[in-house]
Nucleic acid binder design. Structure first.
Lengths: 154, 154
DNA sequence: CGTGAAATCCATAAGTC
DNA sequence: GACTTATGGATTTCACG
């Protein structure tokens, strides 16, 4: 992970469809060198994939919410099973397993408030392992598509 | 947004580097037709960009946390200013503006627990507008890189 | 709006230093 | 490990149904 790798990562985060040639030109290196770097990064698992960023409205997901959940008993089996079930639901974008007051945080995106209500009642309220949950509708999100590499912990 | 567009979006979410030719072959249409569809989707803002998905460890961000924040007074000016300041911090991945008990949720990723502690003390504790905040370390995250299109609200 | 052919450009693999 | 070159294949444009 030298300076060059860091820069490659930064550029591919910004625009994953950049051609290898253009990438090489920007970095001032030969295309074959650049290609080999990208392949090495992929082989090492640094680059995990390339995804198109789609407008949520086009996916009929204009309403987003965060749902914090507590489950009981807080056992490995319950946590695993809950995590797997909810991540399979189409409404759920992300599942976070948390330390602290809440056990899970679910990021969900649905058509409208009616469907959010329906999701909470049909998919969460019914579960016996849920000790409680709290829903916060998301008014706005600022997401950073390009992450810088932080300095080494030193 | 017909069936074809939906399918194009699904495939590009899965792998943004798929060649146009391969995309067309998968869909059973001519490459030029496919290209025009993709361009139209981009022009309409449905496709917002293409981003490489990078392993957080390679970016020195092995520790992630969610920080829920309450600010006072809850005015438009304070919300805007807080949102803009925190989204400019390199540690912050996403800022959510919420309805309900908490006003903001910050998704942060840093080198280690020491840096998390430092971030909270140096960047949050000092702010006068913050009435309180609560931090939850993230043990695990399940993220869905490909979002299906939900049925129309009907 | 979808197709097919032609020109240009690109990814990839050898071979070299 | 990085560069140069050659080639097979892809992207993209354009004229046409």
């Amino acid at each position: 992970m030298d300076e060059l790798d860091t820069e490659i990562i930064r550029l591919l985060q910004t625009d994953a469809r950049r051609s290898n040639r253009e990438l090489a030109r920007t970095l001032g290196i030969a295309p074959s060198t650049c290609l080999e770097r990208v392949r090495a990064l992929t082989r090492r698992g640094v680059i995990r994939g390339y995804h198109a960023d789609i407008d949520h409205a086009a996916l009929n997901r204009s309403v987003q919410a965060m749902v914090s959940v507590q489950v009981r008993p807080l056992s490995r089996a319950v946590i695993e099973s809950f995590k797997n079930s909810v991540s399979a639901l189409p409404e759920v974008l992300s599942v976070f397993v948390l330390a602290g007051g809440d056990d899970f945080l679910l990021h969900v995106a649905v058509q409208d408030l009616d469907h959010l209500h329906g999701f909470l009642l049909d998919q969460l309220s019914q579960r016996r392992e849920i000790a409680g949950f709290r829903t916060s509708v998301i008014f706005q999100q600022v997401r950073k598509p390009v992450l810088s590499r932080l300095p080494d912990p030193a």
